[in-house]
Write a protein that binds this DNA or RNA. Structure first.
Lengths: 206, 206
DNA sequence: CCGTTCTTTGAACACCGTTCATTTACTGGT
DNA sequence: ACCAGTAAATGAACGGTGTTCAAAGAACGG
């Protein structure tokens, strides 16, 4: 009797449709413009129906958040295949910045709105998208160290967190503050190069 | 006839009181919890009265934003007196991070909420708090270059923007994402040191 | 004391997220 | 074919939001 299966399928489909439309609204007008009533209108159901599929508005945000992070991870993965660690750092960094600028509202949702959403993504086991993404970046410095190319005392985790913070700074500043002159890609290049090689031609005070 | 002066003074006082209470609410429960109705209740006026002093809710936010940035500038200024540029970079960076973590809701308002607010602060003449703050930071690299301690081709403005982005990344990540292990101050130290000196003990691939 | 001007407000409008009793649709069993 | 029971959907309401505006109130100058 495939009848309850069909029901289950229809239920899942509606859930997907809600998320699809919700995502559209967020992408187009920002998270704050995601209204349960408008969303219900758009999927042609009564507002109350949404609550049969999601606990509340935040639950929808959470789901969008999780999926968004999945896409970010997917955007980072190709770069992780680059063998030379420093080149890998550049490629992955560029991919990160590119993702942020191309999906501003998704990025905002993931990293700039609700602390609860952002924090969750980085917890929950090492198989979550958060830890996995971070792992890809940390790998750069682990590889450098195990190849003896940076000091043993260097902490790959700390370096990775620093780089992530730097990249996040570039993206989030570009998303909120149009006043900065330098392009995101130039900032990313400067950040990476300078973090790796230091200030160009630095001499000590005399 | 000091009567109209008194009226003007009372008007300004009420405006101040509104801002004071608004600030309290934002600091305590975040910007989204700043409600015109609750604010009116708190200052013991009808909601409509608020609109005689501010165009709308956003205007209040803007004012808080401007003042907040003024405080950030004030927090940076002492460090700007340090003569050794690299030490100055450390001190000012630490002050920046400290300010962000100690005034999370103010920092959010300034840099993470509405792009219009953030962008404004960095425009409007070189005497605005934005350009002045940025100038203090850029000065570090200008001084280094004019002392011949970094390459002539190095662009102080670009380096300053990169550092600012990095610091902002640290603060904003700490404000939204509790999952990062390294403390903000350690991240700041690592960022600064690595940007200046490069990866510790870096050797080229062989 | 009156008329004018400035201040303040109550009431309304159009939204919002969320809940719940009620209705509707559908299915399995008789 | 009908009925009972279950699952899905909803209308209406609650309490909240920012904002507007005509009306009421207070304070002043003549």
């Amino acid at each position: 009797m495939g009848i309850s299966e069909r029901k289950e399928r229809q239920r899942a489909e509606l859930r997907e449709q809600i998320l699809r439309v919700a995502r559209e609204m967020v992408v187009k007008e920002g998270f704050s413009a995601l209204s349960m009533r408008k969303l219900a209108e758009a999927v042609e159901y009564a507002p109350a129906t949404l609550y049969l599929h999601f606990e509340n508005r935040e639950a929808i945000a959470r789901e969008l958040c999780v999926r968004g992070f999945g896409e970010l991870l997917a955007a980072l993965e190709p770069g992780a295949a680059v063998t030379e660690p420093l080149e890998r750092l550049s490629v992955m960094g560029a991919a990160y910045v590119k993702f942020g600028l191309e999906h501003p509202e998704t990025y905002r949702l993931i990293f700039m709105e609700d602390p609860r959403l952002s924090t969750e993504l980085f917890q929950g086991g090492p198989d979550g998208a958060g830890p996995r993404s971070f792992g890809l970046l940390a790998r750069v410095f682990e590889d450098l160290r195990s190849a003896g190319r940076i000091a043993d005392k260097a902490d790959p985790g700390r370096l990775a967190e620093t780089v992530w913070a730097g990249l996040h700074g570039i993206v989030s500043l570009k998303l909120t503050c149009a006043a900065f002159r330098t392009s995101a890609e130039e900032l990313r290049e400067t950040l990476t190069q300078t973090l790796v090689h230091g200030l160009p031609g630095l001499k000590p005070a005399r």
